[in-house]
Nucleic acid binder design. Structure first.
Lengths: 140, 140
DNA sequence: CCCCTCAGTGATACCTGGTATCAGTTTCAA
DNA sequence: TTGAAACTGATACCAGGTATCACTGAGGGG
């Protein structure tokens, strides 16, 4: 509840209105799995319109309260942003749980490539996939 | 044309039929930019059905003749596979041209993370984005 | 404390990119 | 040459996301 309250305050201080729809979506997000989809949220707040759920998710992403994670198949998931600025995800392909990490080691590669290709490198996307300890055991 | 012919042979030796539709799609792919979309191909072969273009692209991917590249916005592009097995892409956000690289340096990070998180890491996706020398000049 | 305004809402239509279906057509081997 | 099976194209469908627009309710000014 305190998280919901904190997010609510942030919305209003940023000049957005704290509507019942937004409150519901935020609470659904807080109550969701580590990595949740818009559909998950919709299931939790069926009375809230589809468009509003999408709009609110976008708002939360814009406010850096939530971050998007792209899965291997290209679909999107969301998760509450608790990690520091630059970070990547290690996603369990079994249960969808996520570990953050920030020491991605790509900067070195980036520099090497910049030298070799003369590109001006702007950024990168890195995501690791694997099985978490629990899924490791259960999958044999 | 020799590339088209080589791909055609590969299709037949793999037990697929070499139809006019497939021939057209292959030639369109060969005639396309470095990084092309299904829509690009469709534009070049408007007489070939949408479904057939998608099916043929999937076939080419399955045969490792073409690889998928996922862009920052999640959309898919294709490119002729000329690079070795494990590789990544450095995509120019200006013009869409692509450099391959394989020395991604993620394995070390992978090992560290595996130790720290006890995940069994299965793979990763890495893509770099930047401006190619040409676009660098014209935008700078 | 009420009222007005405008941000926000929900229904709905639409869009993109991809797949399923299925009757009709082509390939290719025998 | 022929026929089975692979393939095709039209079409319907799906998922996930955006645009539109009349309506509503949040919350600041009076």
């Amino acid at each position: 509840m305190s998280s919901a309250h904190r997010i609510g305050s942030l919305l209003t201080t940023e000049g957005h209105r704290l509507t019942t729809g937004r409150r519901a979506v935020v609470e659904a997000a807080l109550a969701s799995d580590d990595l949740f989809s818009v559909a998950d949220v919709q299931r939790l707040v069926p009375r809230i319109g589809r468009a509003t759920v999408f709009r609110t998710m976008r708002l939360l992403v814009d406010l850096d309260l939530v971050c998007r994670v792209r899965l291997e198949d290209g679909s999107l998931r969301y998760r509450l942003r608790v990690a520091p600025e630059h970070h990547h995800h290690l996603v369990c392909t079994g249960c969808g749980s996520v570990e953050d990490f920030s020491d991605c080691g790509v900067d070195a590669v980036s520099k090497t490539l910049a030298g070799r290709t003369k590109y001006e490198i702007q950024g990168h996307r890195l995501e690791l996939y694997g099985l978490c300890p629990t899924c490791c055991v259960s999958s044999g």
